[in-house]
Design a binder for these strands. Sequence first.
DNA 1: CGACGGGACGC
DNA 2: CGACGGGACGC
Length: 514
Amino acid sequence: MRWSYSPEDGPKCTMEPFVCKKKDKKTAHSPVQGTKHKIKEMADRRSSMGSSSDDPPNSRLFIIGPKTLTEEDFRRTFQEFGHIEEIWVVKDRNTGENKGVTYIKYSKTSAAAKALETMNGKIIGGGGGRSIKVMIAASREQGSKRDLNEEEKIQRLFVVVPKSMTDSELYDYFKQFGDIDYASIIKDKNTRESKGFAYVKYIKFSHAATAFEQCDRKYKPVFAEPRKSNVSRNDDRSFSSTSFDTNMSKNALPGPPEQFSNDGYNKLVVIASPSVNQDQLWKLFDIIPGMEYCQLHYDGDRVRPTRAIAEVVYANPQWASYAKEKLHGFEYPPGYRLIVRAEYDNMRSPFGSKSSNTEKQKPDILQIAQTIAQASNLMQAAGLSPDLLQQKLGLLPAGKESTNYCNVKLPDPQPFANIDEETAARCFIVCTPSALPNSVLKDIFCRFGNLIDVYMLNNRNCGYAKYASKASADDAIKTLHGAEICGNRIKVMEAEERPDSSRKRQRIDVESPF
DNA sequence: CGACGGGACGC
DNA sequence: CGACGGGACGC
């Protein structure tokens, strides 16, 4: 079963008028100016494929019905759902006999959707009392063969989302268009970071169609291709504690390790619920870059261990410190907080010899047994809801802000801007020697409030942070410019305006003074 | 000095 | 049961 966000709070619809950029389909008209009357051209809009093409997608219906039905029968009953480009009642080429098959091409997908949902199975005048069957027409290339999971094709959208967007934010935005089955952001299997794409599946085709047409164009919606495997047998195969991903892309790591400083540590000791296994802990700590090693053993009885203890080693002290800050106290599994402390390989704790074993309460057996029982269910949820984790990673309690992965004092984490707010200001970011992962960028740049999105350009050490408030962007620049984060120096400046194609060609004076 | 992203779902 | 024609760029 795929994880999907389920809502817990009431509806908060913020319907914003969005800037409607024109679709850049291949049917684009040449920008001829001077046409005063472009009234009826919309009705005539035809690409070279004619109106039988599937543009926009899923806007053509395929109808099976009584052979007695005429084009007018269909027009009468189908025109109320939206503008019809063409009705074609298929007739035998030779005999001229009605074959009982009709295509209706709408201008809009949503019209086809409403027509389908309303008219499928209905009896219409002239049909002699027998009902019609209404489907979405397959493409001409595809012919008459139909997919097994056809509904996925018309209920599910594939969208581009900001890297900072979470599943719940995605859900909250897209629920304004209708009832959502699930809203799910695609994430890197190892790092759990958003890949910047998502699936949104609706209960009804018409709701998917509305979202497809009316959502902010920045989401670049398309109807998703159905998944390849039609048989989705969902065994919950238990995690194997020995199956590690050996192909983890360490090349995505930010930069070479800093010079190891003697008063740092790069090893952590983690105490966790005995229901945690090594694979799970590995994946959790591998969210923070630079993890090199994670070895877990159990304390106490082999059959009924009292706790799990792990050593986790990072490539450099900065990441180890970051991991400690972010994961100490984190509930994993829910109901059981991780204890993460530094292990000084070479003696010398900056805090002195603070053997604080006393305050780390050893939970009693009974408590643990209960925890295990609950955790077995919750664990999977925790493992499958990385966004929750990501949120927590960015939003740990303000009390623990020693932030020794960062050399400047940072404000507390702030909530992100609403996803549909306009960008008011952008920062240009340069990281040297190398880029920071997105989870860190989010954590750092959200602290000035009103952050819309932050990302690095592909395979480069520079990127942008978008804010919904100029003041927030200015604050970020003031605080972060020149700071060192996890061993990387960052520069944060006001971004220059993007070379915008919509802008009128700038006339640059190239005239030579000579 | 560096400058404008990104497209497919664990099996 | 039930899957693909006809038209072909102006007042």
